[in-house]
Design a protein around this nucleic acid. Structure first.
Length: 680
RNA sequence: GCGCCCGUAGCUCAGUCCGGAUAGAGCGUUAGCCUCCGGAGCUAAAGGUCCCGCGUUCGAAUCGCGGCGGGCGCACCA
């Protein structure tokens, strides 16, 4: 019934055939047929431990059961033989020739389209200072998820939510006004364009870097000067009231820093479809609408006594997920009438599903790519050309695409926000949207922290001054903190990687031309993205410069190098007039040894790897698979020369495999967002 | 106190969802490999109480219970 030969079709074919055989022999139904990869190719391509399961009910030795099954099973198309291995494994070997032919004919297709639009929200950096590598882990995970979902045939919309009216922006505005002599929005605009602030201060890497320091300064002043602590509330009130210079300063500031963030992410190949702004959620009164819905549902009540007197709270005590909590109710509206972040998040989540009944206005947005330390030509072209929209304060474009209306919403946020994400889910449930609550996914991952050594390196490498407290020094790692000004800024790390990759390239080619510079960028980006993807999501990354700057072994450049090597072969073949090798005639049916076959199997597994990665939200498996494929290729490369091979049939097999590898690695790098250098 | 995550080679990590074959990589160490598709590579060696204990099982790094060590949550902050 399956047309094309693929790993998927073979797997389901074997499962069905085993079920059949077991039914016929013993009348035994098989609950679940798992097929694993045997430890070595010599043992076969797929292994079933089904005989072990049957051993108990049939009261026979596993090996005997496996032998009977092997004799009885009808081999599906593409499977050459079955045999007993080990203590009772039933192993299957595929018809290598037929398989290579099928894979060579076209890319293994992912499973047929699963319907349903995904909204993936990621990045969400407060627009008040430069971004650090913790922010980047978030963005890269979100980006790779979006790429993989797209590969699997899902419509995907990527949103980057901007909290342009929050306390973090307010703190920097206060700092600019009180510590840096800023009087007008024009002062900020000049600084954003590269000029100094009124007090004469500036930063060679732009306003976002300058504000990194301002933010840390403000935090320090708050600690030392009690009077200063009122600044934040004043600024927040001014922003909320609008129509004053402070509000304009906040707007100019956040917009400039958003541009810097987008340029930084753009350099790493990360695009967005929509930038929803907190200020527009306020303007459109999303919360009022959500509040009505919540009050109508009865899940939100006004407390008149107790310690929450005067607040509107979401009752969670009845929900099993929150059982056992000391204080399971969540305040949504404070006794002073202001709204908590969680409340706004519920409203926003409702909008993402199209359940709120009101919508934003939208306008196209073109960031200033040259803000900060990134130049427009550093930004990946796909990102520059990607249509980008933001919510509009007023009016907006009439012909905007439809945003929101998701079937599934994935919020990429680190593990520390798990509790809040659970509350948001619960909010949807009590409103009568259990299926939307079910499809509100929190993509949780661990944070990026610094080893004490990395923290000390920071001081040396960037002449930044801060010292770790004695207790921090004793810890295995230190959390990054904007408030303390402690963190590895993304653009700084990219610069270090660029220096390193330029040095490597300079040592192995003659000219430092445009192509060399482009390749250096590709390598720097590849190294960084891979570094953030290779760890499991629940693993805390204790950042270390030496490890992050490594280009050898389990790294992005290793993958890129394998690809470039394949290209070198094809170039050499073309030079020798052998480019058409293997294209004309049919491929040989026999002679596909293990070196060749390992690569073909890895290539064929890509769709299932992608699917598993998305289902489990464990994207490191894609990175890992790419690494394994590169290893297989390098092994093959050293043992099986192509250009110098004189036997045409042998050469044809090798070329066919190299081509399959080239296409597969390219696909995997595409999923990981790792660029392909021309030369290395 | 309650909840979640982590603990596997000197170091950084896969493998744990769904129990199965000699527990795998990378880095580092040691010893090899460029008249041959560029060595950011390859080959090999050394290196393991899979945190501890009990249990379930024909079989446990993997499942259950109890500990130990580390991290993060449990706001009228975001």
């Amino acid at each position: 019934m399956n047309g094309a030969l693929s790993l998927e079709s073979v797997r389901s074919g074997i499962a069905a055939a085993l079920g059949d055989a077991s039914q016929r022999l013993w009348g035994a139904r098989l609950e679940r047929v798992t097929l694993e990869r045997p430890p070595s190719l010599a043992m076969g391509d797929l292994a079933s431990p089904v005989a072990f399961d049957l051993a108990k009910t049939l009261r026979k030795a596993p090996r005997a059961i496996a032998a009977e099954l092997a004799a009885a099973v009808a081999l599906p198309e593409g499977v050459r033989e079955s045999r007993v291995e080990g203590g009772g494994y039933l192993n299957f070997s595929l018809d290598r020739g037929r398989f290579v032919e099928a894979i060579a004919a076209g890319e293994p297709a992912p499973a047929p389209d699963r319907p349903g639009k995904f909204v993936v929200e990621h990045t969400n950096i407060n627009p008040n200072k430069a971004a650090h590598i913790g922010h980047l882990r978030n963005a890269v995970l979100g980006d790779v998820l979006a790429r993989t979902l797209t590969f699997l045939g899902h419509p995907v919309e990527v949103q980057n939510y901007l909290d342009d009216t929050g306390v973090q922006v307010a703190d920097v505005v206060a700092g600019l006004q009180h510590l840096k002599g800023v009087r007008s929005a024009e002062d900020v605009r000049r600084a954003a364009a590269g000029g100094p602030l009124p007090d004469g201060s500036s930063h060679p890497k732009g306003l976002a870097y300058l504000c990194w320091d301002v933010y840390a300064d403000v935090a320090r002043v708050y600690e030392e000067d009690e009077a200063a602590r009122g600044w934040r509330a004043e600024v927040l009130h001014a922003i909320e009231a609008g129509g004053n210079e402070t509000a304009r300063i906040a707007e100019v500031l956040s917009e400039a820093i958003v541009s810097a963030h987008l340029a930084t992410m753009g350099r790493l190949g990360i695009p967005y479809d929509l930038l929803p702004r907190e200020s527009d959620i306020l303007r459109k009164h999303f919360w009022s609408r959500a509040f009505e819905l919540l009050k109508d549902s009865g899940a939100v009540v006004h407390e008149t006594e107790g310690k929450h007197a005067g607040c509107w709270v979401l009752r969670l005590s009845d929900s099993p997920e929150f059982a056992g909590m000391e204080e399971p109710d969540k305040i949504l509206v404070r006794s002073n009438g202001t709204v908590t972040y969680t409340a706004k998040d519920i409203a926003y989540q409702l909008w993402k599903f199209g359940l709120l009944g009101i919508d934003f206005d939208y306008e196209p947005f073109r960031p200033d790519w040259n803000s900060g330390s990134v130049r427009e030509e550093d930004v990946a072209r796909e990102v520059r050309e990607h249509p980008l929209w933001r919510t509009a304060h007023a009016g907006g474009a009439a012909d905007h695409p439809e945003f929101g209306h998701a079937t599934t919403v994935v919020n990429v946020i680190d593990v520390r926000q798990s509790y809040l994400q659970k509350v948001v889910r619960e909010g949807l449930r009590v409103l009568g949207y259990p299926s939307e609550a079910e499809r509100s996914v929190h993509f949780s991952y661990e944070m990026v922290a610094l080893t004490p050594r990395a923290a000390r390196d920071l001081a040396e490498r960037f002449q930044e001054e801060y010292r770790l407290s004695p207790e921090d020094e004793k810890k295995p790692f230190v959390e990054m903190s904007g408030r303390k000004g402690l963190g590895v800024k993304i653009d700084d790390l990219v610069e270090l990687l660029l220096e390193r990759s330029r040095r490597e390239i300079a040592s192995r080619r003659e000219a430092a031309d445009d192509a060399a510079e482009q390749d250096a960028r590709a390598i720097a980006v590849g190294a960084l993205r891979y570094f953030l993807l290779k760890f499991g999501k629940n693993k805390l990354i204790a950042f270390d410069f030496e490890e992050a700057l490594n280009f050898e072994g389990d790294t992005g450049p290793y993958l890129q190098y394998s690809l470039v090597r394949a290209d070198n072969i094809f170039r050499k073949l073309a030079e020798r007039g052998l480019a058409e090798t293997g294209v004309a005639g049919p491929l040989p049916r026999e002679g596909w040894d293990d070196d060749l076959w390992a690569l073909v199997l890895d290539a064929a597994a890509i769709p299932e790897v992608a699917e598993r990665a998305v289902d489990s939200l464990e994207l490191s498996t894609v990175a890992r698979h790419a690494f394994g494929l590169a290893q297989s290729f390098n092994h093959f490369y050293h043992r099986q020369p192509i250009v110098s091979e004189s036997d045409p049939e042998v050469r044809a097999r090798r070329v066919a495999v190299a081509k399959i590898f080239r296409r597969s690695m390219s696909r995997l790098l595409g999923l990981l967002g790792i660029p392909e250098p021309g030369r290395m």
